[in-house]
Design a protein around this nucleic acid. Structure first.
Lengths: 156, 156
DNA sequence: CGCAATTAAATTGTGTGCAACTTAATATGC
DNA sequence: GCATATTAAGTTGCACACAATTTAATTGCG
C-alpha cells in the first residue's frame, strides 16, 4: 500500500531546508541591522548603497547605477528624488544624450563620505565572521545570484 | 605630505567588497526567480513561504508564523488577508486566548501543496549548486543572520 | 482582588522592489 | 532620409518590510 505522499520526512517543502529562505531572512536582517547605524546619516539601506556607488564615481546615469545595484528606474527614480530632496545629490539631463539623467553629488553628499566610513567597520563586527569567511561567502552568493538571473531569462 | 584620504584603494566603502550587498542583491534575485515559477499558483514569494509554514502545521497563530519567518504583524496581517481573500486560508480568533488569531488552511489551500512540490525542484536547478553547497551556505547564512539580529539588540 | 505590565493583532505611514506601461530621444536598417 | 526598433527615465499600481502606535486581552504581582 502506498503512503499518502503528504508529510513525508524527506519532503523538499520544509522551510528549514530552504536555502532561499536563509537568503531572504538574512537580507531582511541586514536591512534591520544597518538601520540604526545609518540613522545618524539619515539614510535607508538602499539609499546608502546608492551613495556608496556615487562616492566611487560621480556623475553616473540612472542606468549605470541601476546596473551596479540590480535595480530599475521604477525603484531608483523615487529614491533618487528623495536623496535630491535631502540635498545630497543632483539630477540633470545629459546634454549630449537627453534620454539620460546624470546623478552627481552635492557638497553635503560628498562630505557625508567621511562619516560613512564608520558604517562598514561597525557592521563588520555585527556580521561576526572573519574577513576570509566574508570573502568566500560573498563570492558564493554572487555566483548563485548570477545563476538565478540567468535562469529567469530561460523561464521567460 | 598626506594624501587626501579619499578614493584610496583599500577603502572599506567599495560596493564590490560588500558582503551585505551580495546578500541583498541575491535576495532580490531569489524573489525575481521564484516569481515566474509561483505565477501558476498565484502566489508571491512571501505568500509561498507562509503556505510552506502552514503545510508543515495547520492552525498556527500569526505570532508563530511571524517567529518562523522573522516577520511582524505589520507585514503578515495584510498578507494573510490576501491569502484569505484568495480562498487559501482561514482566520479565526482563538476562543481560549482572544488576542490570538489562528490561521488554518482551506481545502484549496491544502490541495495546492501537491502542485507546490514542483517549485523547489525547479528552483534547485536555478540555484546551480550542489545539495552539499546549498547546505553549507544555508548554515553559514543562518549563523550570520543570528549574529546580525543579536547585534541589533546591542545597538538599541 | 485590582491594577500595572505584558502580549497579540491590527493600523498607519514611509520606503522600497518590480511588472507593465508611457514618453521622449537616439540608433538602425533599408 | 526616414520609418522602425531600441533605449533611458519616469509613471502607475501592487505587495511587501518595518517602525511606531493603537486596541483589546491576558498576566503578574503586591
Amino acid at each position: 500500500m502506498e503512503k499518502t505522499g503528504m508529510n513525508n520526512q524527506e519532503s523538499l517543502l520544509k522551510l528549514e531546508n530552504f536555502l532561499c529562505f536563509a537568503i531572504y531572512s538574512t537580507a531582511n536582517a541586514v536591512t534591520r541591522a544597518y538601520q540604526p547605524r545609518l540613522a545618524a546619516l539619515g539614510l535607508t539601506y538602499p539609499q546608502y548603497l546608492v551613495m556608496v556607488v556615487l562616492w566611487e564615481e560621480e556623475n553616473q546615469t540612472v542606468k549605470a547605477i541601476g546596473d551596479k545595484l540590480s535595480l530599475d528606474s521604477g525603484t531608483l527614480t523615487p529614491l533618487l528624488k528623495r536623496l535630491e530632496a535631502a540635498g545630497l545629490i543632483t539630477r540633470r539631463r545629459d546634454t549630449v544624450d537627453e534620454r539620460q539623467v546624470l546623478i552627481g553629488l552635492t557638497a553635503d553628499g560628498r562630505a557625508m563620505r567621511a562619516q560613512a566610513e564608520a558604517v562598514p567597520i561597525a557592521m563588520g563586527k555585527a556580521f561576526g565572521c572573519t574577513m576570509d569567511e566574508a570573502k568566500s561567502l560573498r563570492s558564493e552568493l554572487i555566483a548563485m545570484r548570477d545563476n538565478l538571473v540567468e535562469s529567469i531569462d530561460e523561464v521567460k
